[in-house]
Design a protein around this nucleic acid. Structure first.
Lengths: 107, 107
DNA sequence: TTAATATATGAATATATATTAATATAATCA
DNA sequence: TGATTATATTAATATATATTCATATATTAA
């Protein structure tokens, strides 16, 4: 039996890059502040200050977390003057988040 | 308009307990070692040492992480003599994990 | 009971992470 | 240009987390 077939028997083992991407994705959802931000963006776009006000967080905190989320392409933004409007940018991740919120609520 | 209706307009805001449960769940999936363990348990049950050997991890590391996963009821075990066989115990979480792995592989 | 084996636990350490205050940058408008 | 506003960045700090070694516990078998 080839090594490849042997690996498939035990299901594909995880290569380091996949492992890194997957862990980063879930890590993004593993923090209460980021969950709140993404959940807020589920329906609408918000400015940085808008998020800060809605969630009672510092502007700096929000900006830091938005950078994190933007690096993972989980959010995007559009500019209008000096204001940046952020919105979500990953349907798969948003679906997982909302499903898990519903799952947690009904338990 | 009542406060309750007002809240629904902006979607249900997240209560602290939900926020905690959701973040804990995703945090569990946000670590490469735990991802490897859960992925290994996707098909079969494994002993603690079996996991350690399969993934080239210390027994202690595996045991600590299994405790973490067991506290969240993501894994369960059965005893056979001195050996504990662990298996996964949350279909929703396992489905999310495997979907996200597939998602990451094809990107 | 003693030895052997499997697993869990505790303490120490190193690393990662989230938040904050202060400040820098960038865009707009008078 | 200078003032104003919105956002980003930097550095500091506090906290959380993962791993490891050493050891404790528990089960079984001789």
């Amino acid at each position: 039996m080839s090594d490849e077939q042997h690996m498939k028997m035990h299901h594909e083992s995880l290569d380091n890059e996949t492992l890194f991407v997957v862990s980063q994705t879930f890590k993004a959802l593993g923090d209460p502040t980021r969950i709140q931000i993404l959940h807020l963006l589920f329906h609408d776009e918000y400015s940085v200050n808008g998020i800060a006000q809605a969630l009672d967080l510092r502007q700096s905190t929000v900006s830091h977390q938005l950078r994190f989320l933007k690096n993972l392409r989980l959010v995007k933004y559009r500019r209008d003057g000096t204001t940046l409007y952020y919105s979500h940018d990953d349907e798969h991740v948003m679906k997982m988040l909302e499903q898990t919120i519903e799952h947690a609520r009904h338990s």
